[in-house]
Design a protein around this nucleic acid. Structure first.
Length: 346
DNA sequence: TGGATTTGACCTAG
DNA sequence: CTAGGTCAAATCCA
């Protein structure tokens, strides 16, 4: 892989990564001191996460913008047949359909999230992202304790939106929901406040949604309205500024795949949509990772096998605490040093 | 009554 | 042939 970002972005990225490293070291030192208060540690963790978030957002930004200029098909990454034991087959190759609505599998961009919702928060099983989805199927998956639910965009017919998602509850940790998105929303319909406002201005009937969530709960796929807000908080932590990105930033490869293949691409790439709340142009960091217990991991599905194969390490750390998935894209050297991380991008 | 969910059947890829 | 993905009729519910 080639160099990733321009000098300015590179510098900022290095700064952020170094800060994160320093704070991690500080945290380590703090942990060695018995009398260190949990609050101090929490603050440090938040700072660390913030730094990594910023750094990754930079990479995300430049990659996304680069891919924006490419044909959609050039963005499609062949999914890996890798499927780890106990992964519920979540990452198994999902080829696509060519006949539109036919049962043939489509060639659609695909990306995945792992969402953990900690028990006690009332968000157990919460899987919502601000889009309105209609469940169209459910399947028992071989080797999985929980069925996989299939959703498509409510506006599939009215707007021809082909976005779909699959929600699979993790066997190993039922608090983890693995969500695979396929296709991008051609409809625009995400709110800033937790209610799902569709592009035509209608608000999703909350009672109905609550009912559906309740039903999902009965089958281990409970979804609650609160999660939307929670996820918005999560996404807000990824906020970055598009305006500062120059065209020569467009060499980062990995994150744009995620973005471009994601349902969120319009939101990420178009600050004019309401979804821009997730990736606002303010580049704000609010450290929500430190205050919520939801951990969201975005990855290409090709990497999800890795994530799933080690869900604990993925989930119990920061969203970027497990950077294994980066390796697939960036080909880091084992001796990766933050001093000049770009030297290791191949 | 209209929209969402459920669920068995069907289709396709591997 | 099997498993995963989708369809669509039946059903549910506000």
């Amino acid at each position: 892989m080639e160099k990733v970002v321009n000098p300015t972005e590179q510098k900022n990225l290095i700064i952020e990564l170094n800060e994160g490293r320093e704070m991690a070291n500080e945290l380590k030192n703090q942990l060695d001191v018995v009398k260190t208060s949990p609050e101090n540690c929490e603050v440090l963790v938040e700072k660390i996460l913030s730094s990594y978030d910023k750094a990754l957002a930079m990479l995300l930004t430049c990659r996304a913008l680069k891919e924006e200029t490419l044909p959609v098909h050039s963005l499609l990454v062949p999914t890996s047949p890798i499927i780890s034991e106990g992964s519920n087959g979540f990452s198994k190759d999902q080829h696509c359909h060519n006949k539109g609505e036919s049962k043939k599998r489509k060639i659609l961009p695909k990306w995945s999230e792992q969402i953990r919702v900690c028990s006690g928060t009332g968000l157990e099983g919460a899987v919502d992202d601000g889009h309105s989805w209609r469940k169209y199927g459910q399947k028992d998956i071989l080797g999985a304790n929980f069925p996989r639910a299939y959703y498509r965009c409510t506006h599939r017919h009215s707007r021809g939106c082909l976005a779909t998602k699959q929600v699979q509850r993790s066997d190993e940790d039922p608090s983890i929901f693995e969500v695979t998105y396929k296709g991008r929303h051609s409809c625009i319909q995400v709110t800033n406040s937790g209610s799902a406002i569709v592009s035509d201005g209608k608000e999703m009937p909350k009672a109905k949604k609550a009912r559906s969530l309740e039903k999902e709960d009965q089958q281990g796929l409970k979804v609650q309205n609160e999660v939307l807000q929670t996820k918005q908080e999560i996404f807000r932590s990824f906020s970055f500024n598009f305006t500062g990105v120059e065209s020569d930033n467009l060499d980062c490869q990995f994150f744009s795949d995620v973005m471009k293949e994601s349902d969120y691409s319009p939101a990420f790439l178009s600050p004019t949509t309401s979804e821009s709340n997730y990736f606002s142009s303010s580049c704000q960091m609010d450290n929500n990772f430190g205050t919520i217990d939801n951990i969201l991991q975005i990855s290409e599905s090709v990497d999800l096998a890795d994530m799933i194969s080690t869900p604990t390490s993925v989930i119990t750390n920061s969203p970027f605490g497990d950077l294994d998935f980066l390796n697939d894209h960036l080909d880091f050297e084992p001796s990766f040093q933050l001093d000049d991380p770009f030297a290791y991008f191949s």
